[in-house]
Design a protein around this nucleic acid. Structure first.
Lengths: 134, 134
DNA sequence: ATAAAATAATACACAAAGGTATTAATAAAT
DNA sequence: ATTTATTAATACCTTTGTGTATTATTTTAT
């Protein structure tokens, strides 16, 4: 029941940028704050800006800016982006094949638990994670 | 929100053995039925028998037998065995560090979803997955 | 213009998970 | 005893996620 480290990194970076006071963050700023491996972080930032979630400007006064409305970016979006869409579209527990060959024997409880998780992922936005709001 | 492929394999093998009619399964039987890569399956079976969930006997009439009461083997046990105990003991979403540095900003909804999942994993036994029971 | 400070791109290195190949050991059937 | 069918053990290969190194590009300050 895990997401990849990269997904974790992405969420931490984005929440930091979406919630924090500052608007402009350099890669080094984020490194100091989050201690995500420097070079890896750089690449992640480039990917996130390609995806349009943040925007990077180069040069001496450059850095990254959060480029969306925090209330409109859901965790599901981020997961889909980093891990690929199929991740959450699989059988309960994330299995690609159902357990008891052919018939899915998962009970209503399971379906409910899964739906609840997905519901949370699609309704939880970066903005809603802000502890200073509540 | 995935478990490893190996965990998936383990659960499929064990449910098959716990629920099925036959008692003795050779590695080839299980391969035919489940199409899990042959050699990898062999190794998994060896691991599962070392853990005491199944018992293997060698020789011409050999094979593997399910060695426990299906009603007493939980999914959590299997996951812990294959992936290690920490897997489920991490922050919500499986993250090792909380999202907004220091304060866990996850709402009660999240905790509830996690608890529900864990509850299901500890209460769902192999026996309870049997579609012929209900 | 030149230097400095930042991102961008590309290629390489490492480790773990997944999967394969080979050989050894065991036990029953003949 | 020999053959056959099985598990057991070990070592290797492949893929993917993670992390590093190097170099190029852009922009501003001086």
């Amino acid at each position: 029941m895990n997401f990849s480290k990269t997904t974790e990194y992405a969420i931490r970076v984005l929440t930091t940028m979406a919630i924090g006071e500052e608007k402009l963050y350099t890669a080094d700023d984020l490194y100091e704050k989050l201690k995500i491996p420097k070079r890896y972080l750089r690449r992640l930032l480039t990917d996130l800006s390609k995806a349009g979630l943040i925007a990077g400007t180069r040069g001496r006064t450059g850095g990254f800016v959060f480029a969306k409305d925090p209330d409109k970016v859901t965790l599901k979006e981020i997961i889909d982006l980093v891990e690929g869409k199929e991740t959450l579209n699989r059988c309960i527990l994330g299995f690609s094949a159902c357990v008891a060959d052919g018939h899915c024997t998962m009970h209503a409880d399971w379906i409910q638990a899964k739906v609840q998780m997905e519901e949370l992922l699609t309704t939880t936005t970066l903005g809603s994670l802000n502890p200073n709001r509540k």
